[in-house]
Amino acid sequence: MKRKFWQNIMATLSLLPAWAVLLVAYTGSMIWSIQISFTSSRALPSNNFVGFDQYRRLFSTSRWLVSLENLVIFGVLFVVICLVLGFLLAVALDQRIRFENGFRTIFLYPHAMSFIVTGLIWQWMMNPTLGIQKSVRDLGWESFAFDWIGSRDLAIYALVVAGVWQAAGLVMVLMLAGLRGVDAELWKATRVDGIPAWRVYISIVLPLIKPMIVTSVVLLGIGVVKSYDLVVALTGGGPGMASELPGKFVMDYLFERQNIALAQAASTVMLITVLAVLVPWLYMQYFRKSGRSPT
C-alpha cells in the first residue's frame, strides 16, 4: 500500500517540469506580456500603467493597419487556395493513378523545407531582372510581368504563391488520409446506384472528411497569424510596408524599434485572434469525445 502511494507520488513528480513550463513559460509569459501592453514601456519594461493607450496608438499606426489588412488578404487567399488545391490533389491521387507515390512525394517535399528557404527560392524566381519574368520575355512575350515582390500592390500575392507552394502538400496529405478512410463499400454502393464520381465527392465524401477540412483550416490559419519567417525571407515586409504582417510587426517593435508595450499590445491582439479560432475547435476535438481518461 505504501509502495503504491510512493509510485503515485513519483508519477506526480514526473509531471512537475511540465507544470513548470505551463505555469511559467506559457501562462506566466502570456500574462506578463499582456500586462506590458498596458504600460508605457519602451526599450525596457516599466510599471507605468497607461490603460488602453497602447491599443489606441496601435490602431492608429498605419503600419499595423496595413499588417491587419494584409493578414486578411493573405490569410483568406492562402487558406482557400491551399484547401482547394490540396483537395484537388488528394482527389487526383485517389484515382488509382500511376506513379502515385512519385506524385505524392513531389507535392509534399516543399513542406519539409523552412519558410526561410521557401522565401529565398521564390525571391529568386520572382526576381524582376533575372527571374521568370525575364525568361518568359526572352521567349517573345514582351509584356509578361511577374515582378510581384517589387510591387506595392502585388507583393502580398507573392507571399500567397510561396506559402501555397510550401503548404498545399500538407493539406493534400490530410485530405488524402480522409479520402482513404472512406469505406470502400460506400464507393461500391454509389457505383451500384449509378452516382457519378464528382457527385459522390461533393455530396458524400466532402461532408465525411469535414473533420480533416476543419483541422487543415485551423493549422493553416494559425500558421498565417504567426507568419514571420516567410515575409522576412521573401519581401522583408516591403516594398515600403506593402507586405507587412502582424507577426512581423510584433518582432520588429520588440527587437528593432524598442517599443515593447506597443509590440505586446499587437501580440495580445494576435492572441485574441488565435483564441477565437482555437477555442471552438479544441472543444470540438477533445472535450466532446474525450479519449481514455487516465485511471
Partner: peptide
C-alpha cells in the same frame, strides 16, 4: 457493363449507407 446497368441491387456488410442523408434520401438518392 457498369454496375448500375446490370440490373442488380447490392447489400454490403458495412451497410454502406450515405452517412449524412436521411433514410428517405438514402433510398431515393440513386
Amino acid at each position: 457493363s457498369e454496375p448500375k446497368d446490370r440490373g442488380i441491387g447490392m447489400v454490403f456488410q458495412s451497410y454502406a449507407l450515405y452517412p449524412q442523408m436521411s433514410v428517405r434520401q438514402n433510398l431515393s438518392f440513386g
